[in-house]
């Protein structure tokens, strides 16, 4: 028997989950490029899309983490001017996988766990992005500015998590396919 999911036209086609995830990503990047560029922390924009990727990877596991990470990174790359396209995709794909894997080893019920994981993942993401951007010859990434951005992004992402994670969890719970039964 194959995967069955809850009622509805989209879910009958098995498209409910990809459609919901796609919509979440688009709305997240739209908010990140409008409202959140005005509500900055000392001029630094939080990475809402990244928090969404981490939340989904924690909730759904490494395979969803990989796919969502790739497409989220790609959307962000496509909307950034003249940066190295594919760099964010590469990074989010890897982080999506790692977060999806380490969830097997974490106490899942703790409300602090998503906050902790987002903080760690943000630190890793900001650091590697700066290093990769320098290696690939992106112009002007000064150490001082990078350090300031990294610190504030980690803080801002962490502060957003208690608001973002529960919303993503509710949507994910609704569109998750029912348990696979093999006979």
């Amino acid at each position: 028997m194959s995967v069955t999911s809850r009622s509805g036209f989209m879910s009958e086609l098995g498209l409910a989950r990809p459609a919901a995830v796609g919509a979440i990503l688009v709305v997240a990047i739209a908010l990140q490029s409008t409202v959140l560029t005005k509500v900055t922390l000392l001029g630094v924009i939080p990475q809402l899309l990244f928090v969404v990727v981490i939340s989904l990877a924690m909730l759904e596991g490494e395979r969803v983490g990989v796919v969502v990470g790739f497409f989220a990174g790609l959307i962000q790359d496509f909307l950034l001017p003249q940066s190295v396209t594919g760099l964010t995709a590469l990074e989010y794909t890897f982080i999506g996988y790692v977060v999806g894997m380490i969830r097997y080893y974490l106490p899942s019920q703790s409300v602090w766990m998503p906050v902790f994981v987002v903080a760690l993942a943000s630190a890793f993401a900001e650091g590697t992005y700066a290093i990769l951007a320098i290696i690939m010859g992106q112009r002007w990434v000064s150490i001082g500015y990078t350090a300031k951005v990294a610190g504030l992004v980690i803080l801002y992402n962490t502060l957003l998590t208690p608001f973002v994670y529960p919303v993503i969890k509710r949507i994910a719970d609704r569109v998750r396919p029912e348990r696979v039964v093999r006979i």
Binding site: I29, S33, T34, T37, I45, L80, Q82
Partner: peptide, 8 residues
Amino acid sequence: ADAPGNYS
């Protein structure tokens, strides 16, 4: 909209 990143 603005660019959604901190480096451009």
